[in-house]
Design a protein around this nucleic acid. Structure first.
Lengths: 234, 234
DNA sequence: TTGTCCTATTGGCTAGGCCACTGAGCCGTC
DNA sequence: GACGGCTCAGTGGCCTAGCCAATAGGACAA
């Protein structure tokens, strides 16, 4: 099972519409198109891509299913507000704004992630975490809310856990988390205490203390959650 | 902004391919088609649905993107093994069989789920959990491995947590969990100790003791994991 | 100003056709 | 008999050409 074997790789065949869809998304990000912006008319787009309208239409169907664009009869093709569709996100949001659910899920995932990070972090991981802390600190001192640094921090910790599955799950609910996060950080004084929480988490991870890291992360998530829950009442 | 307003409901316009896709999926479940089964040829299917091949093709693209079917050039259209696409499952499996990852994720989710279940379980939840325990017990006494009861139990506990997001995530990794579960339960004597673990979890949930429930679940997952880790070494 | 109509533009869908790929069966060679 | 190549029917891939339907916006009448 080593050298010569392993050959018969299925040799993935790509359909034209897939390539077209990719080119379109590439074009979108190249030109930095936002939600609401329009794609060129089908006929024109098909011509410039060198494919038939039928094929282009397939590509648009694919993009529509994924949730990248909305095709409107007689009007045109418009970009949807979410460049990358998170299926779970959709499902939950459609059901209702269930902030508490998000908190629970986040608590479950990040607590474990923090513990794993304490055990597995590399030097590089620690540096990334420290950098995120610094960025958040600078932002807050400059009067900002430290949103970006906050996200950076949590991403760095997640990566330090070196657990692909957990990382994937965090990615899936990241958009939902972002909503609660921004809200939390807009509360006066919240950024500072959030930063302190981060510091505690980082210290525990750095020290390799899994239990302390988990506890610190749990406390941090709870700190965020009480705000969100308040809103949940309203 | 109350009564008369609100009228201009966008009047959801459905594209033909959507209806076609729905009819196809309906047809699939009606005829109880399984993974690997074939759809009729495009020309024939298009005719019987009363649409052009181009439209049918769009519908197939949509179904392909969702992960319901695989369209194979020169061969035919085949049903995929997962009626609802488990994207995560794919990603992980494609990367490599990472049993430890699964254990970690499972630990993160189920520990939290157990704690929530202890706080939120209804009478009905408790009955379902008890029933699953009974089923597993009977199976084991009859010489079985209690696989089905095991799954039932965990599903019942998950439902008792009443957290849609966490439930959704459990569903997503359930297939991966199943693989480790079957393996674990085939170890002699493992079914009995697993059953004991379940009992402990159920007791804690029944008592409303979140902390104990979490601890019991954690211990249970770890019990399973040592077997899996052994295999991970191999 | 308001409401109606017209029309250019754009997507929706069809028809019909040719090409490329797959799998199975046939047949010759060894 | 086993192997390899060949053929061919069936199936999807993609295209061209064209008409229909929806939309938005301007022209125009009231």
């Amino acid at each position: 099972m080593s050298e010569s074997a392993r050959f018969p790789r299925p040799l993935q065949r790509t359909r034209l519409y897939e390539q077209v869809a990719e080119q379109i998304t590439a074009w979108i990000s190249e030109n930095d198109l936002k939600a609401g912006d329009r794609l060129p008319p089908e006929r024109q787009l098909a011509t410039s891509l060198g494919v038939s309208r039928a094929t282009l239409s397939q590509a648009l169907v694919a993009l529509e299913v994924i949730g990248v664009v909305a095709v409107r009869h007689g009007d045109g093709t418009v970009l949807t507000d979410k460049p990358r569709a998170e299926r779970i996100t959709d499902a939950i949001r459609a059901h209702a704004e269930r902030i508490p659910d998000v908190i629970e899920a986040r608590d479950a995932l990040e607590t474990k992630i923090a513990a794993l990070a304490a055990q597995r972090r590399t030097q590089q991981d620690l540096e990334r975490i420290a950098a995120a802390l610094k960025a958040m600190e600078r932002d807050i001192e400059a009067g900002g809310r430290g949103v970006q640094g906050d996200e950076l921090f949590h991403r760095a910790v997640t990566e330090a856990a070196h657990s692909p599955l957990l990382e994937q799950m965090m990615t899936e609910i990241s958009e939902l988390i972002r909503e609660t996060r921004i809200e939390s950080l807009s509360q006066p004084d919240r950024p500072r205490s959030s930063l302190a929480g981060h510091q505690k988490i980082a210290d525990a991870i750095s020290a390799g203390d899994a239990e302390a890291a988990a506890a610190a992360m749990h406390g941090h998530v709870m700190l965020v959650s009480d705000v969100a829950l308040l809103r949940g009442d309203a």
